[in-house]
Design a protein around this nucleic acid. Sequence first.
DNA 1: TATGAATGAGGGTTCATTCAT
DNA 2: TATGAATGAACCCTCATTCAT
Lengths: 196, 196, 196, 196
Amino acid sequence: MNSRVSSPKLRSILQQAAKLIYLKGYEGTSMQDIADACGMTKAGLYHHIATKEALLLSIMHFGMDLFEELVLDPVQDITDPLARLKQTMARNVELVTNDTTKEVTIILHEHSTLTGDAQKAINARKKVYVRFLETAFEQAMASGQIRKVNSTLAAFSFLGTVLWMYKWYRSDGALTPQQLADGIGDLFFKGLEPTP
Amino acid sequence: MNSRVSSPKLRSILQQAAKLIYLKGYEGTSMQDIADACGMTKAGLYHHIATKEALLLSIMHFGMDLFEELVLDPVQDITDPLARLKQTMARNVELVTNDTTKEVTIILHEHSTLTGDAQKAINARKKVYVRFLETAFEQAMASGQIRKVNSTLAAFSFLGTVLWMYKWYRSDGALTPQQLADGIGDLFFKGLEPTP
Amino acid sequence: MNSRVSSPKLRSILQQAAKLIYLKGYEGTSMQDIADACGMTKAGLYHHIATKEALLLSIMHFGMDLFEELVLDPVQDITDPLARLKQTMARNVELVTNDTTKEVTIILHEHSTLTGDAQKAINARKKVYVRFLETAFEQAMASGQIRKVNSTLAAFSFLGTVLWMYKWYRSDGALTPQQLADGIGDLFFKGLEPTP
Amino acid sequence: MNSRVSSPKLRSILQQAAKLIYLKGYEGTSMQDIADACGMTKAGLYHHIATKEALLLSIMHFGMDLFEELVLDPVQDITDPLARLKQTMARNVELVTNDTTKEVTIILHEHSTLTGDAQKAINARKKVYVRFLETAFEQAMASGQIRKVNSTLAAFSFLGTVLWMYKWYRSDGALTPQQLADGIGDLFFKGLEPTP
DNA sequence: TATGAATGAGGGTTCATTCAT
DNA sequence: TATGAATGAACCCTCATTCAT
């Protein structure tokens, strides 16, 4: 669970900040809040980051790193496209529901806070994921593992099903993460089975 | 498209504010912004609303009114549970993608901004929708129209697929709203068909 | 002594701010200082001005207005060029030494604080004064009232002699403003008399 | 062009700082700016200077050293008072217009930044220059080289003409420094010639 | 000497809100 | 109803300075 952030101090700042922004939103989180959470002063915080927006950008890249490390990378080598998709969903569900990693969903709700190049950079990384899914769907169609559908629609449907969960999933609820992942996967992939 | 807001002045304020908050977020939208958009002064605005949070609450209730009026109410009388679900999805997709109504999605992203009773009130109304879906799924299972699944999971999967769209759908994109609704419905409901 | 500033409130703010900036410099004067001097809060101050730089610009225009009103305008109709120059110097000395008007010299020392269009606007107004002097010198040469010299150099020499005074002149010193103006005028204009 | 600053390191710091303060003002120049210009860290800078104000004082003394070395010292031995004054003006003009020495004018515009003893010390050194000029004027009057005028006024008129130049002189302008010095000198000293 | 990290104080600015008119 | 003016609190950020290493 280690991504490309150099200093451990900075890393801990990113994690504290991510937690707060996850809970209260970017505009709703002040630099004072973040400094308090890190046990430093505001001025001390600015020794490690340039601006609040740069901090958000770092968090997003950090979240993207984490996502790629825990979801995309371990799945790249699965040659069977359908198996790859199922594994991806399972891992993504785990990421979004696990208390220690769910803050990565900041990537999702603060979608229009960044501006300019920063926004472009993050959007580019998100697009990679969408393309990854589309490709897998197309391969699965080509091999006859799933029926013919619009791959873009399939990708966004996949994402909606998985990413929406952070709005309602509670770790103390009735379903275990495993049941959750299985149930969601069953619902989603059954709809794609080839018609006899 | 008329919901339960008394004065037309207030109604127009809610709509302007909803548009802004949809675009820039609650914290990112100032009372000055809203006053400007309404062509009034800040002090003038305060003759119609009590506080900013009360304004948000009103908008959310307004959005919920709209949602119930355009999605839930017209569908209540459909006795066939599966037909009811399909109609619900079609109408919900329309609501979320139509430029004149998509602001209701504020209900979704400002989920943790309200506090106390206000938050409870809105959450209660959301829960009604979830229950409505669960019930429909259960009825459809009972009548054998769909296979046996966890109705809660089905409801949230339905919601995720539909509500997530506002993150990526662009009205100037390749798909018409109709194609979108059809495609999403096909993907989702195919997975629920009873196994032979 | 009335120039083109609309509201009397704003006018008093400009005067208080001018006094402070005159004494401590632009960067050395905080908005808090200015608010205190005006008997308001910082936030109250911002009801009347947009930014600190805009405030400085207003002060400079205000100073320029005052300058034109008290120095340039009353002198425009003097047809004799040499008499016009002498009157100009007398009035300018008065402006710079009088305790109630000397703050206009902010125009001078904060010459590089403004940026962009604001700077251009002020520089343009200064240039008008330089041109006014050059023209008068040229006319006086043409009519034989003074000897032939470089009119630009004469203008800047005139300005240096007069404007520099704010660095050393103290109203409680040995010389009365009148003696000062006479002495400076004598020194400067004697050097321009035509050689016999 | 060597003045009484001990370490070469310190000397280079003073020069870099002088350049910055000349361009942006004392309050407008941060210790970080200075450290950057010197290629050191802020903390490193503090091994050479005690405080920012002490740095300014050093720069002013450094500027005064330079001034005395390049203007006053070479002129002290000229016994003819009028020749001495003319030489002084020529050298002072050169100092103020030359790109490598014009930063000494900081001495002039940051006149009220220093406080207490530091301010007194610098003012005392400035006063020496004024006294030097006054004395020369008095001697020239006594010897009949110039007509009778108020020596203090003459000194400040001299200074105004010369020192004001940094506000408008551009080294890429129409006049060479030599023409400038000659022109200014002509204007100024012609006014002092004894009346026949 | 040099530095990375830290800090208290203060910078300019914006905020939601109030109130006399 | 409507508004211009005001405010206290908070905003993001920068400052000169210190100190352990």
